[in-house]
Simulated scan of single mutants.
Amino acid sequence: MEHKNQNNNIISIEKKGILLSPTIKPFESNGVLNPGIFQEGEEVHIFYRAVEDGNFSTIGYARSDGPTNIVERLKRPFITRDFDYEKHGVEDARIVKIEGIFYLTYTAYDGVNAIGALATSKDMKHFERKGIITPPIDYKEYKFHLEHCNQDKLNPKYFYYYNLFAELGIVEEKHRLLKDKDIVLFPRKINNKFVMLHRIWPGIQIVQFEKWEDLTKEFWVDYIKNLTDHILLDPLYNFEVNYLGAGCPPIETEDGWLMIYHGVCETNIGKTYHAAAALLDINDPTKIIGRLPYPLFSPSEDWELKGVVNHVVFPTGTALFDDDLYIYYGAADKHTAVAKVSLKQLLDELKNQKHEKV
C-alpha cells in the first residue's frame, strides 16, 4: 500500500505492513517492537524489543533474507535482563559496527529509571554488558547544573519538563536518575571520535568522545552546564511540538548524514508519534543542512493507530536495497512494521528544506 505524505506529495512512502507480531511465547506475548537493525548484504538482522506480561522486556532476534522475508526467529530471548539496572527491561536496541566491534545501545529499565546502556560484541552473537553510559545524576543535580547554561539560548521547555516532573513528585524520589533514552551511535567515528545521539527532554543532543571511559560523572556535569552547545534538535514544528527522540543510526550518504527520528505532539486524542527526517553535515554532524517541516510518515493504519500505546510510529533502524530505503519501526508499541521510501527522493527534499533555528 502506498501512503502519500499528507503535507507534501514530493515524498512517497510505501507502508509494507507488519513484519513481526507478538506470539504465544511468554517472553514476547505482549509486544514485538522498536527493532535495532544491522544489514549485511542481503541479510537483515533484527534485534527487537520483546515484551512479556508486566511490561518486562528482553531483546529478541530475527533475520530476514532481503528487506522483509523472515527466515529465522529465535524461540527465546537473545539478550536477557542480567543486571539490577535492567531488571525490568532491556529495551529499544540500536546497533552499529565500528572498527570491527558491534555496539548495541539500549534503554535499561530497573522499574524506576530508564537510562542508556551499552553492550558490545565481536561476532554479533555474544554481547558483553558495559553498563550505564548516560548521566549518572539525579534531577536536583540536573536542575542545578542546567541553571549554569546560557539561559538566553536554552529552550524553556527544558525547565518546563523539570517542573512537570517536580509536580508529579518524580524529582523527589529516592534513587531517581535523569531520564535519558533513545541512545543512537553514528556508524563510524568522525574526526577520531565516537558520536552519539541521546535525548534529555525535550530535544535531541549530540555528544562526542574519544573513548568510553571518558563518560564519567564529571564529563556529564560539564556537558549539562554547557547543554546549549550540545543540543542538535529541539521541538520546532507542530507535529513534534512536545518532544523529539533519536531514531535510526544515521545513514552516511554523499549529501550528508541522513537522520531519521521521531517527533511527538499532544492532540485531543492523546500523544501521536511521527517519523521525521533531517540531514546533517558529513564532517560536522552538529551542523544541520535540512530538516523536514512535516512528518516523514505518521500513524494511519490500524496497526499504528490501535495497540498497547495508540497512534505510534517509532523508527529505530534502516536497511538499504539499491535506492529503496526500508525503515523499520514500532507500531503502536505492539508490532514491528516496515515502510519504504526512495533515498534519492528524500535527500533531494531535505536539501531543499533549509533548517530554521528554534
Results as ranks from 00 to 15, higher is better:
2 E>V: 10
5 N>M: 11
10 I>L: 15
10 I>V: 14
13 I>Q: 06
16 K>P: 11
22 P>D: 00
28 E>G: 01
29 S>F: 00
29 S>E: 13
34 N>C: 12
35 P>L: 02
36 G>L: 02
47 F>A: 03
49 R>L: 04
54 G>Y: 00
60 G>K: 00
62 A>M: 04
71 V>R: 10
72 E>K: 14
75 K>P: 07
77 P>S: 01
82 D>Q: 12
86 E>N: 09
86 E>P: 04
86 E>H: 05
94 R>I: 08
94 R>W: 01
99 E>C: 05
112 V>T: 13
131 G>V: 03
134 T>I: 04
134 T>R: 03
146 L>T: 08
159 F>T: 03
174 K>D: 15
178 L>D: 05
181 K>T: 09
185 L>S: 05
192 N>S: 14
194 F>W: 14
199 R>M: 09
210 E>K: 15
215 L>V: 06
216 T>A: 08
221 V>M: 12
221 V>I: 15
225 K>W: 09
227 L>D: 01
229 D>Y: 10
232 L>T: 05
235 P>L: 05
239 F>A: 03
241 V>S: 14
244 L>A: 04
246 A>W: 03
256 G>R: 08
266 E>I: 14
269 I>M: 13
269 I>P: 04
273 Y>H: 07
274 H>Y: 12
274 H>F: 12
278 A>G: 07
280 L>Q: 05
283 N>W: 10
287 K>F: 06
289 I>L: 14
290 G>N: 04
295 P>N: 03
308 V>T: 13
311 H>Y: 13
313 V>Q: 00
314 F>S: 11
316 T>F: 02
320 L>M: 11
320 L>N: 05
325 L>N: 06
326 Y>T: 04
329 Y>Q: 02
331 A>W: 04
332 A>E: 03
343 L>E: 06
347 L>S: 05
347 L>P: 08
351 K>G: 12
351 K>W: 13
355 H>A: 09
